[in-house]
Design a protein around this nucleic acid. Structure first.
Length: 268
DNA sequence: ACTGTAACCTGCAGGC
DNA sequence: TGCCTGCAGGTTACAG
């Protein structure tokens, strides 16, 4: 599901709801991806942050509860009257009697309770690039990062190294907006500058619309996002390019469906 | 150290 | 209706 805008939307709603609450009980699916969720018992939420697609809740006594939503992960307040949901992978009871739960049909998500900043067990987080909406995401360094590899530019964006938080939807959106072919292997400085601008714009707009709901994603409040009604490229293969009218094409890069405009996104 | 590929899971839509 | 195939917001392990 969830790329940076979806995770940020969840973070903003989640933080005021759980800050100050103490976890008094917890259960988790036995998979090592979720099994450490109960390690948070007796800890209190101090804040809820985010890095890229990772939610990082600060706990007291120097611990962090990290949640990655994978493809189908949903965080929500448990409904005590709801029938048992077999896809709930973790459940934390809070000291006000409410409960937070993590539902994840495909189990691509991940939960970790770790000493603060200890990310060696999460290699992508450990080596994560700069936050795209911060000053640390800077055009010159971004260009240098892209030039450091000869992999396709879309692959690099999705690697989370040159910039954090971009996944399949927003990679296609940003590259379309920047007019750069997703399989381009050597980006010029003007191209990387356009991608830099486009990444920021696309993510900022998506956050303002509470994210993109294709199927599973819901905000913490349980609503869908609305950015799916504003996608310019992702998922539009076979339809006319909104800029030039050419038929958008579909290919596969990095085992991921990729949409691009053969006219606006030339290879160099 | 880097790169490409398979693997991890389940549900759903579409074709026959 | 049922079966089969392909596809889906991601990360990680592993082989070369």
């Amino acid at each position: 599901m969830p790329e940076l805008p979806e995770v940020e939307t969840i973070r903003r709603q989640l933080e005021p709801r759980i800050t100050g609450r103490t976890i008094v009980a917890a259960t988790a699916h036995p998979s090592p991806k979720f099994a450490t969720a109960p390690d948070a018992i007796t800890h209190r939420f101090e804040s809820v942050g985010r890095r890229g697609k990772y939610l990082i809740a600060r706990l007291d006594r120097d611990r962090e509860l990290i949640v990655h939503l994978g493809m189908t992960g949903v965080l929500r307040i448990a409904d005590p009257d709801a029938p048992t949901d077999p896809y709930v992978r973790a459940h934390w009871t809070l000291d006000d009697g409410s409960a937070l739960e993590f539902r994840d049909v495909r189990r691509f998500g991940r939960i970790a309770v770790l000493p603060a900043g200890e990310y060696r067990s999460l290699p992508t987080l450990h080596a994560l690039g700069p936050e795209p909406l911060s000053d640390e995401f800077e055009p010159r360094a971004f260009h240098a990062a892209l030039r450091a590899s000869t992999r396709p530019v879309k692959t690099q964006l999705m690697s989370q190294r040159p910039v954090a938080g971009v996944g399949n939807i927003y990679a296609d959106e940003a590259l379309w907006r920047a007019g750069v072919h997703p399989a381009a292997r050597r980006t010029t400085r003007p191209q990387s500058d356009r991608i830099h601008t486009a990444v920021r714009a696309v993510l900022t707009e998506a956050i303002a619309r509470n994210g993109t709901t294709l199927r599973d994603y819901r905000t913490f409040d349980g609503d869908t996002g609305t950015n799916q009604h504003h996608l310019e490229c992702y998922g539009r293969a076979g339809s006319p390019c909104l800029r030039c009218g050419s038929e958008l094409r579909r290919s596969v890069i990095d085992q991921r469906g990729t949409t691009w405009c053969p006219q606006c996104q030339r290879r160099r």
